[in-house]
Design a protein around this nucleic acid. Sequence first.
DNA 1: ACAGGTCAAGGTGCT
DNA 2: AGCACCTTGACCTGT
Length: 303
Amino acid sequence: MRIGYPCVNETLDCSSSTTFRLASYSNERVETTVANNLACLRRILEYNVAHELRFFRISSGIVPFGSHPINTFPWQTRFAAEFRAVGDYIRAENLRVSLHPDQFVVLNSPSADIVQRSIAELEYQGAMLDLMGMDSQAKLQIHVGGLYGDREVAIARFIATYRTLPEAVRRRLVIENDDRLFSLQDCLRVHEAVGIPILFDNFHHECLNHGEPMAEALRLAAATWHPERDGVMMMDYSSQQLGERKGKHTSTLEEELFREFLSHLHGLDVDIMLEIKDKEASACRAVSVLRELQLVAAEVTSA
DNA sequence: ACAGGTCAAGGTGCT
DNA sequence: AGCACCTTGACCTGT
């Protein structure tokens, strides 16, 4: 089991997603920005190794305007060695990485333009993983998309588009159950049609479900991951921020809730991404919680 | 120097 | 029809 956090390290004094305005685009600016972002990514991964955080969501913003037509800079060749070095480090340390394209990637949109731009963005993010030399266990995580007033049509359109995706994207793509529109059950239907793995989000499941207990939901999602092709199931973990609207992520890890969640795994191996506001601080606490549980288990065994 | 408005991109739901 | 929200920082302009 690996523990991780998304995109941003709040301890280090660098960002791996520095960008600039479209209006101030230049090739030179792309080159210096990518160089800085990759250097920061490397520092973050080294920090993570030092803190036993072996799962990390790489920022989508490593290459500014990475899928925008304005970006004609040959970043793939210019930074081939740098990407490769990051990938070598990831493999040497047995880290797991993923990327999460943001809400603008909507494969089931009725607009052909939006779908085309979405695929271009997925290709850009997949290309980074390819340059790192990552296999298909490094995942691109998206949601099913919009409802457009008809769930059945929306799901059918996702499936149809999925089948047209280039292999470099499709072999890494996974869908996440969301908190308002597409539940675990909806994702399972997509999985049954095309075999795409489901990245389970426990908090979204708490917000939107059909009564499946947590342990059952975990088991269902885990069964959609092919061990060799996809690796151990990835999941997002969070909990409700008390006093805020439903769906608001907690600002810091609630250790009791986390322990309770872990009890539903029943030995299932998962890589857990903590979608929690204070990032690596909570991730480090999660590692401590796990270590304590392992110590207790070891004492029980030896006694 | 600093504050505040703004930034490529979508969709939902409330008022 | 318009705006807040998801989620986020930090870029950039105006003072």
